[in-house]
């Protein structure tokens, strides 16, 4: 990974416990969380206490480029506790790329992140969240999304290098006619992953869809709890598919539907298995080795790695 300070196009970058760079964009306020806590009293309801680290992004007007944040660990044994707050004002369409990463794979760091994302009435947020960790790291990530009426959220989380332990939690609260689509992809190698993702259909005609793609390899354990709670007449669907790549890993997928409204419709599908022999043989008959075929199937399963682009320049390569 390159030094985050040199990365162009990043709006907020933090290395270890230091803010490295803030690049404001017309139409948005971008600050360290503690400054926002001091300057905007209304933000305090979103924080449990005065934050010490993390970012505040307030998108007040339409911005035509994605906003990018990067929180990195560069030194051994660093412990981070970023508290992030994102507010998307009414009627705005915004896109955010959020990267949490390590510079080296042997730093044994701790990252405990908490984020609150508010998508106001009739606004749209596309958020891509990328995690990249080392084998000795410990990570806890908690995120809450509040969608006001007719707001839309598309959230794509990808972690292709898990830490030693990853605890990931998301809670999404949907108001009238709002909708949220989640695509979560995790590839665990030598890691222990515990995921709890819940969607609350609180408003009529709200809809939530959660698609989990999880792979466990090399003595890994993944526990994926996904849940939709219908408090109003909405629609929800859970789709969880797991692939086991070795004999010593295990996946537990627990989809849960809780319907408290007779006019709501909740569905789910879940499967865990190995890579299909038929697909492997097919690709091998095209000249790919077994390993190449597995890599290709895994890549497809987790979703294509679409690079983070800013003005035609690939940002994500700077962090991987």
């Amino acid at each position: 990974m390159k030094n985050v300070r040199s990365a162009k196009g990043v709006n907020y970058s933090q290395t270890d416990n230091r803010v490295e760079k803030i690049s404001m964009r017309r139409g948005a306020v971008i600050l360290p969380s503690f400054k926002a806590y001091e300057e905007f009293k209304w933000t305090r309801k979103y924080f449990e206490q005065k934050p010490e680290e993390g970012y505040f992004i307030w998108v007040k007007k339409q911005i035509n480029h994605p906003l990018t944040t990067c929180i990195a660990i560069s030194l051994p044994k660093v412990s981070q506790e970023p508290r992030n707050l994102v507010i998307i004002e009414k009627g705005i369409e915004a896109e955010i790329y959020s990267i949490c990463s390590v510079v080296k794979k042997n730093l044994c760091g701790v990252h405990i992140g908490k984020s609150r994302i508010v998508v106001k009435e009739s606004s749209t947020l596309k958020m891509r969240h990328f995690h990249n960790w080392g084998r000795g790291d410990r990570v806890e990530s908690s995120i809450k999304f509040f969608l006001e009426k007719e707001a839309k959220l598309s959230y794509n989380y990808k972690c292709l290098a898990v830490p030693e332990t990853l605890k990931k939690e998301s809670n999404t609260f949907l108001d009238f006619r709002s909708s949220a689509g989640f695509e979560i992809a995790v590839l665990a190698e030598c890691g222990d992953v515990d995921m709890h993702d819940s969607i609350f259909l609180n408003g009529e005609k709200s809809s939530g869809m959660m698609k989990l793609r999880i792979i466990a390899d090399k003595n890994s354990k993944i526990s994926a709890h996904s849940k939709i709670i219908a408090n109003s007449a909405g629609k929800g669907h859970l789709d969880c598919t797991g692939l086991l790549l070795d004999e010593n890993s295990c996946i537990s997928a627990v989809p849960e539907l809780l319907n408290k409204n007779k006019d709501a419709t909740l569905t789910h599908e879940a499967s865990i298995g190995k890579i299909s022999e038929e697909e492997l043989n097919y690709l091998r008959s095209r000249g790919l080795t077994e390993d190449e075929a597995i890599n290709l199937i895994v890549t497809g399963f987790l979703g294509e790695n679409v690079p983070f682009l800013y003005k035609g320049r690939t940002l994500s390569k700077d962090y991987m």
């Binding site: 690709l283 000249g287 987790l302």
Partner: peptide, 28 residues
């Protein structure tokens, strides 16, 4: 192996080719 035969110049057109999700034909 299958791939060694493919590399020698053998190929098979499948009667029921499987779907491979997430991979575009152009990528293959």
């Amino acid at each position: 192996s299958i791939e060694e035969r493919a590399k020698l110049g053998m190929a098979l057109v499948f009667q029921h080719p499987p779907t491979i999700k997430g991979i575009k034909l152009s990528k293959l």
